[in-house]
Amino acid sequence: MYASPIPMHIPDGFLSVVVSIVLWIVSITAIVIALRQTNKQLGEKQLPLMGVLAAAIFAGQMLNFSVTGGTSGHLMGAAIATILLGPWQAMLVMTSVVSIQALLFQDGGLLVLGANIFNMGVVGVAVAYFVYRAFQQFSKGARWGILTGGFAAAWLSIFIASLGVALQLAISGTSPANIAIPAMGGIHALIGIGEGLITVGALSFLLVARPDLLGTGDSRGKTSIGVWVGGLVITLALAIISPLASTHPDGLEWVAEQKGFLDTAREPLFNIIPDYVFPGISNQALATIVAGVVGSLIVLGVTLGIAYSRRRATKANQ
């Protein structure tokens, strides 16, 4: 029930270790810069502001509206957070949201948390910021610019982030690019509409209640130019790479390369190991499976023993 309804949180096991680590590094870099920037902008106030806002975004993801036939529209929140807080704080807020979802609700994996932070916290926010700012500049802050800009930012942030997810799955050899990219992109093109509509609803509410909060960017524009460019680059890159990648039918070719690399790395190691593996069993594959099963049985046996003796101990105490 508390799992995020947007199918964008990658579980552990779906990304290769290389992809996971590279995206950890990218995300950590972004977080460190964001921490510095928010410290400059907000000082001591940033802690309560971001903590409470992150809680509100997380809780806001539970809000839904029925679309049709039991499906419903939901909010991810990267765009509204970006519009309300500016890109750096939004990155930290989304990072906190995604981290809590992984750590406590297993919504998204732990090893792949870096990738999930990258998709929702970095890509989602940067794209939303780039789009919203572009609309603001074009419309000179008019009401229509805020609302259409909000919709576009929300929709595109979901759509582009989903292309990122699909590409990561393809590179990891988990899903062929020619299927993952159109499928993820297609689903999220629809989900993005719900995100866009809720974002517009939230913006029109805020336009009436607190229009001063929506002056985004103008005061923060200078320090965030990097995010703007980043958003532009990410949007263009994913929009161009994705269709290209999906025309290459074999997502597995990446895996083949990695496998080949591993094979060459492994050979010298094999030379050190003598030819037999398990006493009495000549078939190597069989031997290793037997080893695994024997090991497992020992583990289970020991555990059951401990559990049993503990139960007896607690009974004896009563």
Partner: peptide, 18 residues
Amino acid sequence: WRARVTGGMAGGLLLRSL
């Protein structure tokens, strides 16, 4: 309309959290 009502709730929530 339903989406915008939900959006209004989200907006209210964010405002209160501020």
